[in-house]
């Protein structure tokens, strides 16, 4: 598989409390992130609030400038483009290829525009189609996401959360993108609607030949949809591995903690006290020295407190982890036993 996107040493530092009075402080949201996305795969970025996953998504799509580092987009038949080096005008053609689906379908749809205009807006901006052709393309993509054409004259407030998210997906897909970044795209939805949208994303991926970067905090959803998972903690990538491997045998203690904390919809598999996570996520402005996770890690050694582990490949696997003891630790996975035939 060819690479469609690569991120090199990306950092994002926010300056807080800038103003006439008072000192400003720095907040490192992303710390030296590197990753590649292969064409046709679904890469999930998981982590808890404040881990930087949303900042990463926004820096990749150039919704906000990165402080350092580069983001490359690799078009199919052309040389790679450094998105981080482009001006707003130069970026515009690439905005057709890289699209975003937002978490909150209510706030991401302009309440003053009808569904038709919402979906047509990207086509109009890029002057791709007009008149009859525009109409056809809009109705076509609406049909694909399951919104009947007679609803196109309505305003977003007339739709339920799931339907609004479908409209958001239609907006992303109407430009025939190659790469779609979905930022917590199903988190605000009820379970039954969430399942509908997940299936829809699955189908559309096939049909449009899409690549997804799927940002989520929900490991259950990530397990379902992703081919590869990047786990983030306090602005660092702590693990990057194919989904099966990550859930089978995590290589970073934080991944293990996340998996252990995930409630499973089966009362016979209740967690014991031993797996209850320790500690709290440190306040953003108060990052620990050494390994960012050492304050909560039950395997932490002296070395962890002083030396920051680099993200490195684990020999013989496709896994990468940022832990000094990645090879040595026998960490617990989270797979359920295959269900019996009776279920």
């Amino acid at each position: 598989m060819s690479t469609i996107l690569s991120v090199e040493n990306l950092s994002k530092i926010y300056t807080l409390g800038s103003g006439l009075f008072g000192p400003s402080r720095e907040l490192v949201a992303l710390n030296d992130i590197s990753l590649t996305v292969k064409a046709g795969e679904t890469l999930a970025i998981v982590g808890e609030s404040g881990c930087g996953k949303t900042s990463l998504g926004r820096c990749i799509i150039q919704a906000q400038p990165a402080t350092e580092g580069r983001v490359y987009y690799h078009p199919k038949d052309a040389a790679k483009v450094e998105l981080t080096a482009l001006s707003k005008r130069e970026l515009k053609p690439w905005r057709r290829d890289v699209r975003m689906i937002f978490q909150d379908p209510m706030s991401s749809l302009n309440p003053n525009m009808r569904v038709f205009d919402l979906v047509a807006e990207p086509l109009r901006i890029h002057r791709i189609a007009r008149g009859r052709e525009l109409e056809e393309r809009v109705y076509d993509v609406l049909a694909k996401v399951g919104i009947p054409s007679d609803a196109a004259g309505r305003y977003p407030h007339a739709f339920s959360g799931g339907q609004r998210q479908r409209i958001g997906i239609a907006r992303a897909l109407v430009l025939d993108p190659k790469l779609v970044i979905a930022d917590e795209a199903v988190s605000a939805l009820d379970v039954s609607i969430q399942a509908q949208v997940l299936n829809l994303l699955d189908d559309l991926k096939e049909e449009f030949g899409l690549t997804y970067i799927f940002i989520s905090h929900d490991l259950g959803v990530v397990n379902y949809i992703a081919d590869r998972v990047v786990v983030m903690y306090l602005g660092h990538v702590v693990e990057n591995a194919p989904t099966d491997l990550l859930f089978e045998r995590p290589r970073h203690p934080y991944t293990e903690m996340l998996l252990a904390a995930l409630p499973v919809a089966d009362p016979t598999r209740r967690k014991g006290r031993s797996t209850t996570p320790r500690g709290e996520i440190p306040y953003l402005g108060n990052r620990p020295q050494g390994c960012p996770f050492h304050t909560r890690c039950k395997y932490a050694q002296d070395r962890c407190r002083s030396e920051k582990p680099a993200l490195r490949a684990i020999d013989g696997t496709d896994q990468m982890a940022a832990c000094h003891f990645a090879e040595a630790l026998e960490l617990q996975g989270a797979f359920e036993a295959p269900q019996k035939a009776s279920a």
């Binding site: 003053n112 049909a143 996401v145 399951g146 919104i147 009947p148 007679d150 609803a151 004259g153 309505r154 305003y155 007339a158 739709f159 339920s160 799931g162 339907q163 479908r166 509908q196 299936n199 829809l200 189908d203």
Partner: peptide
Amino acid sequence: LLMETPVSEIAPRRIARES
């Protein structure tokens, strides 16, 4: 998918088309 979403039942037409 189309069958999964009976949009027509969601809201009275009048309100749905109001700006």
